[in-house]
Design a binder for these strands. Structure first.
Length: 347
DNA sequence: AAGACGGGGCC
DNA sequence: GGCCCAGTCTT
């Protein structure tokens, strides 16, 4: 209990004020936990506030259209989080009479909620004794107890889960879980933690063995793939054309007609894909952007935007959208950034 | 068990 | 350029 008590007492002096603290409203806790998956507080906070403002309750979220939900999520990434949350909101309204389930196994069954989020919700809202295991917890446990097993293996996952449960103060689950994550976010940070002011350093295995920079261990490395996107911004008077991505990256966001591949200008205009999009319409090639680089965690996207003027254009694959309504459509950051730049240049 | 899935910030 | 962030789902 020494470990838990130390962390909790640190928390009582150092915790930040955050809007999802001091509430046991499952909808608000759920939303904050989904937003904060793989996302820093500073990045997620504005999204949380926007969501609560637009959808104050689970019923508001359940009644919204997918485009509305995705539009609010635009720019935050990992869009399946928003799709799953929307699905689950509708599910809870329909099958649970709008009441969030109150036991761990029921919560864990919900789409978009895994072990971490189920433990967070069930401890924060219902005071159930489940330990959270996230990046913070893994980092702290691996350092404090000197665990030199990679956490991204089945063995590692088991060990950290068991250790987290062993160290959980079951009488103070909520505060224990909050404390350990806040401690990881503020004190036991990934790079160059300031151990000289750490109240746990005396008994920290990594600190005492000079292993802080080595732990936690990870087995896999990330590899980054290159992709080439050619977006056709087809301009017909006041409108343009969009399609919805239905798989892979940016699924359920909208984009301009896309030709993927590393083409020269000449080859692109002669390609079958280009023909298929423009079909028999009259067009003239207008402004062509320089190559824009969009860096993601697992891929680097090199994009070019081709402005194409048409007088009459028809292609059932694409949805004609007036530029005045364009803002209602959720779009990837890459496209949003490009259009904002163009606007700046033209004004 | 291994990949896929975003975007931002830090070094 | 590499790594990490209050992870989960699919294959």
């Amino acid at each position: 209990m020494y470990f838990s008590n130390s962390i909790i007492s640190w928390y009582n002096k150092n915790a930040r004020e955050l809007p999802w603290r001091n509430t046991v409203n499952p909808y608000k806790i759920w939303l904050s936990e989904i937003i904060l998956q793989q996302t820093r507080v500073s990045q997620g906070l504005p999204y949380y506030l926007k969501f609560i403002e637009n959808f104050p309750t689970i019923n508001h979220l359940a009644s919204a259209s997918e485009n509305q939900v995705m539009k609010l999520w635009q720019g935050l990434g990992y869009y399946s989080r928003a799709r799953n949350m929307h699905f689950t909101a509708k599910y809870i309204v329909q099958y649970y009479n709008s009441q969030f389930p109150e036991n761990y196994n029921e919560i864990l069954k919900l789409k978009g909620i895994g072990e971490y989020t189920a433990a967070a919700i069930s401890s924060f809202c219902f005071d159930l004794p489940h330990a959270v295991v996230d990046g913070n917890v893994i980092r702290i446990l691996s350092r404090y107890f000197g665990i030199e097993i990679p956490y991204d293996t089945s063995e590692g996952k088991k060990i950290f889960k068991n250790l987290a449960e062993r160290e959980l103060n079951v009488d103070l689950s909520a505060i224990h879980n909050q404390s350990i994550m806040e401690f990881g976010a503020l004190q036991c940070v990934p790079k160059s933690p300031n151990c000289s002011v750490c109240t746990l350093s005396e008994n920290c295995m990594a600190f005492n063995s000079n292993l802080i920079d080595l732990l936690p261990l990870k087995s896999k490395k990330i590899s980054v793939k290159k992709r080439y996107f050619n977006y056709l911004i087809i301009e017909n008077e006041d409108s343009t054309f969009l399609q919805k991505r239905n798989s892979g990256i940016w699924k359920s966001l909208y984009e301009f007609p896309l030709i993927e591949g590393d083409f020269t200008e000449e080859k692109l205009l002669k390609s079958d894909e280009f023909d298929e999009i423009l079909q028999n319409s009259d067009f003239t090639i207008g402004f062509v952007s320089k190559q824009v680089t969009h860096q993601l965690t697992h891929q680097t996207i090199f994009a070019k935007f081709w402005h194409i003027k048409v007088s009459s254009f028809q292609n059932k694959k694409y949805k004609e959208v007036n530029w005045d309504c364009f803002i209602d459509f959720p779009i990837p950051r890459l496209i949003d950034k490009y259009l904002k730049n163009i606007e700046k240049v033209t004004n």
